[in-house]
Design a binder for these strands. Structure first.
Lengths: 132, 132
DNA sequence: ACTTGACCTTCCAACGATGGCAAGGTTCAG
DNA sequence: CTGAACCTTGCCATCGTTGGAAGGTCAAGT
């Protein structure tokens, strides 16, 4: 299977497959005589794993660990730990975004939105307190 | 006022002040004979505006618009519109992160976390459904 | 055989916002 | 005059992903 087929089968773009290879996230693919990479079903499986982990917001570093935990059948403890750390990260980001959204909502509510220029949103950005 | 003073006064690093200048977010600073940039109080004010807008999660492109709305005293309508669009963005990001976090929470709950390798988190990434 | 189009290769660059470092010039106080 | 603190430009790195350019390969149609 060439890289294009592997890409379609896994949902990871050929571009990214090559990239993952260069950063060492996946092992170097076998090559044909003419230099084409070729892939097996298990490589596609791995790529799909990576794609799903990316969708879950794991960083490539984390995915690297997850992959080794997966492929070496390490104790679930470690996986759980990693996932829990990531979850804490996610929650922190959510909380931060929420407080920004909350402040912005307030400001928008208080803006008349008409043709006059005065606007609490701008006033807030310009002046008193940061929009947090 | 030199760039360092402007940086301290505005909370924007000197690095970023130069960067904002190169990308055209702020106008080119006046220079001394020896090439030092120098700033007025109103520049600091502008920088503070930018810093607050960044903290509120606006992109530089959006900030560029906000700045011109602010400085040209355009109708509040336009500001409100821009802020509302940004808010929708924020909310979409929050929603997405929340659904990821929710799925991950589920998976973590179902993981025994012990020394055996089998783990629903890995199973999920490897197999059936994406972690959304 | 030959052309064509789809595919593959590598390398280089960009996004957005920021930090860091290096090599060199300037300013000011001691 | 020297040293510290400041400034200048420029390049590199992050992180994940995408795009392009220039060129080689393959398979199908003529």
């Amino acid at each position: 299977m060439n890289i294009g087929q592997a890409a379609r089968a896994s949902g990871v773009s050929a571009k990214m497959i090559r990239h993952y290879e260069t950063i060492g996230l996946i092992v170097k693919a076998a090559r044909s005589l003419s230099g084409y990479r070729h892939y097996q079903a298990r490589d596609v499986h791995t790529l799909r794993f990576i794609r799903r982990a990316r969708m879950a917001g794991f960083s490539t570093v984390q995915i690297k660990k997850l992959l080794s935990l997966w492929q070496d059948r390490q104790p679930a403890r470690e996986v759980k730990q990693l996932a829990a750390e990531h979850l804490i990260d996610l929650q922190a980001r959510i909380t931060e975004l929420e407080s920004i959204a909350q402040a912005l909502t307030q400001l928008i509510e208080h803006c008349h939105g008409g043709e006059r220029p005065e606007c609490p949103i701008l006033d807030n950005l310009a002046g008193d307190e940061p929009a947090r």
